[in-house]
Amino acid sequence: MIVYEEIIYIALLTLLASIIGTLAGFGISTIMVPVLLITLPLPQTLLLVGIVHWFNDIWKMLLFRKGIRWKIFLAFGLPGIFTSFLGSFLSLRISRDVLSRALGIFLIAYVLFIIFNQAFKLSQKLSVAVSSGALTGFFAGIFGIGGEINAVSLSAFNLKKAVYVATAGAISFMIDSTRIATYIQGGTRLDPVLVSGFLIFIPVSLIGAVIGKRGVEKIPQEKFRNFVAIFIFLLGLKLILFP
């Protein structure tokens, strides 16, 4: 049974995750899911974090609203809708540990590769954007974590900081909307106390996004890609060690 003290802990976790998620363009689910799984069942965890993530998507789009690249958004987002539904449907039917570790290995390998091959960039072809969006949606649906793949692919487009964060938020908004609806349709419900907690979680996530925006503005553009790469590496390591 959820007690009100836990609402405060979740609110603080939401604040931290929202700051980092806005700074890097991803990471909210990777931070919140493993922590909440200590006390909550998996279905409730995925739904709760999905809703928090959905609101953070909105804050990113509003705070960086002049930066969305609509062609990239559609190329990533449309296939992500379908695969997010598929991943959400399969979320309680297959083991996520193997997928999580595989994703972690891929992320670390990618970061190490670009460190030693500074000139390498993923292709900016439409096929790369579509396949990346599909993978992002699938992983987001199946275990609530997919933004890392999104970040890897978006970094290939050399987007300005504001454009990167806004576009990532818009893509994630489409995917999160699909998976939240799928979780609810599948019968997942939150404890009434948790539902009341959104009166705190939502404004706290906005505060975190505002703080994160100020941090983004202070990071030099030429160092922003390296900043994102560091987060990708750390989260990849987390997925391997603690899937």
Rank of each mutant, 00 (worst) to 15 (best):
M1C: 14
V3D: 15
E6C: 13
E6Y: 12
I7K: 15
I8G: 08
Y9I: 13
I10E: 10
A11S: 13
L12M: 13
L13H: 09
L15E: 12
L16W: 10
L16Y: 14
A17S: 13
G21S: 10
T22R: 08
L23Q: 01
A24I: 02
G27Q: 04
I28Y: 01
S29W: 04
M32F: 10
M32Y: 10
V35G: 08
L36F: 02
L37C: 11
P41C: 05
P41D: 12
P41I: 08
L42S: 13
T45P: 11
L46S: 07
L48V: 12
L48F: 10
V49N: 00
V49W: 05
W54S: 06
N56E: 14
D57Y: 12
I58S: 14
M61C: 13
L63H: 07
K66T: 13
I68F: 04
R69M: 12
R69H: 09
W70M: 03
W70C: 07
W70I: 11
F73Q: 02
L74S: 08
A75E: 09
P79G: 05
T83M: 08
S84K: 03
S84A: 11
L86E: 01
L90T: 00
S91H: 09
I94F: 11
I94Q: 06
S95V: 10
R96S: 15
D97C: 08
V98Q: 14
L99V: 01
L99D: 02
S100E: 09
A102F: 10
A102D: 12
L103H: 00
L107Y: 04
L107V: 04
I108N: 00
L112N: 00
F113M: 06
I114Y: 01
F116T: 07
F116G: 07
Q118M: 12
A119F: 14
A119Y: 13
F120G: 07
L122P: 07
K125M: 11
K125W: 14
L126G: 09
V130C: 05
S132E: 03
G133Y: 00
G133V: 06
L135G: 03
L135Y: 03
F138E: 01
G141N: 00
I142Q: 00
I142H: 01
F143K: 00
I145N: 06
G147D: 04
G147V: 05
E148G: 15
E148T: 10
N150K: 12
A151M: 03
V152W: 01
A156L: 07
N158Q: 15
N158H: 11
L159R: 01
V163D: 14
V163K: 13
V165H: 02
A166R: 00
A166D: 01
T167K: 02
T167H: 05
G169C: 04
S172G: 14
D176E: 15
S177E: 11
T178S: 05
A181E: 03
A181S: 07
A181C: 11
T182A: 08
Q185L: 15
Q185H: 09
G187E: 08
T188D: 07
R189C: 15
L190A: 09
L190H: 11
L190W: 06
P192F: 13
V195Y: 12
F198H: 02
I200S: 13
I202S: 13
P203K: 08
V204R: 05
A209F: 08
V210C: 02
V210L: 14
R214K: 15
G215D: 07
K218W: 12
Q221M: 12
F224G: 03
F224H: 01
F227I: 03
V228T: 06
A229H: 06
F231Q: 02
I240W: 00
P243W: 03
